[in-house]
Amino acid sequence: MKRSSVMVPYMVWMILFTVIPLLLVVYYAFTISGPDGAVVSLQNFSRFFEPIYLRVLWRSITLAVISTVVCLVLGYPAALIMAGKAFSRKNTLMLLFVIPMWMNFLLRTYAWLTILERNGFLNSLLVNLGMPRLNILYTDYAVVLGMVYNFLPFMVLPIYSVLSKIDRGVLEAAEDLGANSLIVFTRVILPLSLPGVISGVTMVFMPALTTFVISRLLGGGQFTLIGNLIEQQFLVVGDWGFGSAISMIMIVFILISMAIMSFFEGEEQGATLW
């Protein structure tokens, strides 16, 4: 009895800001406004399955997968080094990952604009070193770079938190039984860190799939991702029905990818970020 009354504020919050908005999205997605009010229709969904929009979906998935893989390749070794017993500056490195996140996300992304511009910081550096110019602003490279830059901490931190909790005794036992460091890594550390990897992959893949700011600023409106398409429907065109339908399709996609992740996670306890 007492317990449920404590839950009330949370329930009210959830109903007001999660359940009702979701129901509204469903309502708009399945209706189109006709001359005499809203009519139930699947037209918004069938429109999304035209090749031009499927290509947007495909582009978003590809860029999100690439960003996630790059984050993993960069992030796992970093987490491993930070969790290592020999590494004494672990707190400093940790701070270096976290402090940029205190700064506004938009500001950090804007900063890349001036770095990557044709006559920007990167190119003046390259020219001074006698190297050819690199024009990557407004290409998909710039978009991936922006995603990796912004989401890397979300990969490193969960992996680090799992790695640092591994019992040192387990590693010593493996070494005592004759395993070399490669085998200790592949047979002991890697399997034990998998929950952290999965949670990191989820936390990078989801925002990378739905971002619209990074692709707009660094892609120059050239690379419409699914987030941009939704934003455009709500803020420019005012077609709430189509925007809601795309949002619902995205929710389904995210649910599917979460199901796949938790399948890999198996029986193990998922690692939380902090």
């Binding site: 031009i52 929009y53 290509r55 947007v56 409106g221 419409t224 941009n228 398409l229 455009q232 429907q233 065109v237 005012g238 077609d239």
Partner: peptide
């Protein structure tokens, strides 16, 4: 106009 512009941007 709305549809055509959405398509151009998505292309």
């Amino acid at each position: 106009y709305d549809r055509i512009w959405t398509e151009v941007k998505a292309y």
